[in-house]
Amino acid sequence: MAVETLNNLSFLTLLKKFEPAIFLYNTILYYEGEVNHEITKALTFTTEKHLGKTNAKHIIQKKIFNVMVECLQNIDKYAVEFAISENNLTRKGAILVSENKDAYYIVAGNIVNQKQIEILTVVINNLKLRKKEDLRFLYKKQLKNGMLSIKGGAGLGFIDIARKTGNPLQFCFYPLNSDLSFFVLKICITK
């Protein structure tokens, strides 16, 4: 599968095939398509507004908003680019927000290359093993590193998600071809 043909790929089909369990809960929002700053604002502010009308606690609403921003900005910055026409590249992603009686769930999906798989695996696995105290330390360390270099502090978004949700991040890579995979990140926010 070449990158040029990936824009015909349905992320919803992939999610239904590989992660059927994520569709068991009540869907609050599902989006699939180009992810840019305007889309990120539209999706996060719409969800925030919706949750504001529900009985969700203020702090939980903010955690959901927070996780959505970090997930969508990661896609906006790092997902493998698609050619939508000869001269136009775009980044595509999927995001699902759902709930059941115990928790809210946020699932994000996008295409990554082999190099990114290696980096993401190390970064996220590193987080999985850590306790809350360690995450604080790691966040501080990343923040200090981030201060020193312009692009430094990669992974701060994941640390922030892990720290604020208090639940381990779950992730999977589903290979599409020799270089590209579908990356799925699952986050649970307990009510």
Partner: peptide, 16 residues
């Protein structure tokens, strides 16, 4: 009210 992690790095610069 809210800041993302990319802003957190800039806030850290301000504090420095």
């Amino acid at each position: 009210e809210y800041f993302n992690t990319a802003s957190a790095k800039q806030i850290a610069k301000i504090l420095l």
